[in-house]
Amino acid sequence: MALWHRLFIHSNHSSHTMKQIFSLLILLTVGTLMSLQAQSFKVIVNNDNAVTSLTKKEASDFFLKKKSKWVTGTAVMPVDLSSSSAVRESFSKQVHGKTTAAIRNFWQQAAFSGAGTAPAEKATDADVLEYVKKNPGAIGYVSAAASTAGVKTVPIK
């Protein structure tokens, strides 16, 4: 009986320790993923744009062309990274709350129904930066590590 009791206690104790380690690992993984996601892109606009920050909904509406003008009346010109970009996946999930595939579905439906066309797509951060520099109404996003000299970074609240 004593042996069984000891084994039971030991087993219970080790199970408890395992649970603690497992919980810690989950917390660490989620924390790392969250911090990676939080830092994976920067939203940028033209230097002449007066906007200082945007909510997720405002940014999403601009990229989905649900809002077509800035408060100044300038036409909004969103630009996306290509659909295979990891930065775009992160942007889609955090700003639109959907996967890039779901956003592509949205644009496919809009294209076939005549409701609208998808934003211009650029292959690299440099191309997005160039587009935003050239167009006063442009809004884009680049990887967090990209230099954003010559454009304005806009925090997403």
């Binding site: 010109m77 294209a111 066309t117 211009a120 050239k134 109404g137």
Partner: peptide, 12 residues
Amino acid sequence: QETEWEAQTRIT
């Protein structure tokens, strides 16, 4: 010309 429109072609 302040806004430089790039002609866009899409195929799906």
